[in-house]
Amino acid sequence: MKQTQFKLICTLMAAVFTVSQAAAQTKEKQIFLSPPLIRSIYTADPSAHVFNGKIYIYPSHDIDTAVTDNGSGDHFAMRDYHILSLDHINGPVTDHGVALDIKNIPWAGRQLWAPDCAYKNGVYYLYFPVKDKQDVFRIGVATSKDPAGPFKAEPQPIEGSFSIDPAVYTDSDGQSYMYFGGIWGGQLQQWATGKYQPNGSKTDLQNDDAPALSCKVVRLSSDMKQFEGPVKDVIILDESGRPLLGKDHDRRFFEGPWMHKFKDKYYFTYSTGDTHYLAYATSDKPFGPFRYKGIFLKPVQGWTTHHSIVEFKGKWYLFYHDTEISGKTHLRNVKVTPLYHRSDGSIALIDPFKSK
């Protein structure tokens, strides 16, 4: 990538951040739909799961930093994970303390971003993205016998892993899959050729009429610690059966994948990033292809939208984050609200603000 092209991307990203911050100031005057689950620390990117009859939430742990906001996300300088739990929706939230610290990951360099957790055969597996000592995002795994941790990291990242936002879905047959990836600061565009390119490749800002950069999906091995088989693209098709294009910022994948199943349909949900929606697409197979269906969360206050969807005691819930407490894009707080599947399989649209 030429230096002038790189500067153009940085300029455009800075403009997006400026616009979103101005929008956040406007949103402050509105009434939030849901309260923060916890106020003692800043949390984001909530991956929620039901273990042992309780909801456990695996979020990022935001910290204040002197790093200036930039398109590479350097101001998201998280260094550890706290695990939260609650016995019922709207009940008290327990912070179980530090479950994994970056200093205890032998290969890690900086930036512990959005994690996820899975369970199999008596072991809990915490999946986490972190930049290695060469400043390249890889995905690691840590294990514990307790869903609240503490977790012990494997000595090396998962072979063949890259980018960010791992989300692990275990199907009814016991097979587990990992969905992962994020563009811009998540480095997915730097793997467009299959090999890491430090200066990046064309992003959706430069390659509007080509199929959009895609989330990745791969089977996990039986021990849950390795990839099994090739990493594949998650193809999202429009109403005409054509892949979504890079210029389709309202619908294309940006980051934050999640998978859930409802009435034998696979729901691939994700953030559109710079347009701030949560969107969904459905398929009859975990590998897809997926058909785009619509958005189900309008923009929150703050820049990012990252989520999870979980069924608990017969009802479905959306976990997400915004910046109600701080008003700063890198100091977020997690929230929860009911999510509804309509009789036709569509998801009802959620507005993160109440009408006055």
Rank of each mutant, 00 (worst) to 15 (best):
D204Q: 02
K131R: 15
D238T: 11
F262V: 13
T272N: 13
F319Y: 14
K2M: 02
G200W: 08
S163L: 06
I236G: 01
Y267N: 11
Y196H: 10
R342T: 14
Y280L: 07
Q25V: 11
P106K: 13
K225T: 09
A192L: 09
P129N: 05
D101P: 05
I183P: 00
T26A: 09
H260K: 00
G229R: 05
F137E: 08
S283N: 01
P166H: 00
A212V: 08
I9G: 03
R332S: 11
A24F: 01
F32W: 07
S144P: 08
Y125Q: 00
V98K: 15
S163N: 05
F162R: 03
G97Y: 13
D344V: 06
R251N: 15
K247E: 12
G241S: 06
I309C: 03
L339F: 07
S72V: 00
A142D: 08
S214E: 07
Y277W: 14
D135L: 07
Y56C: 06
F290A: 04
A279S: 15
T26Q: 09
I295A: 13
T193W: 08
A14G: 13
P155F: 12
N333G: 10
D101M: 02
G53V: 11
P338C: 10
Y196M: 06
S20R: 11
A192D: 07
A24T: 14
E28Y: 04
D62K: 05
S85R: 03
D238I: 07
N121K: 12
Y280F: 09
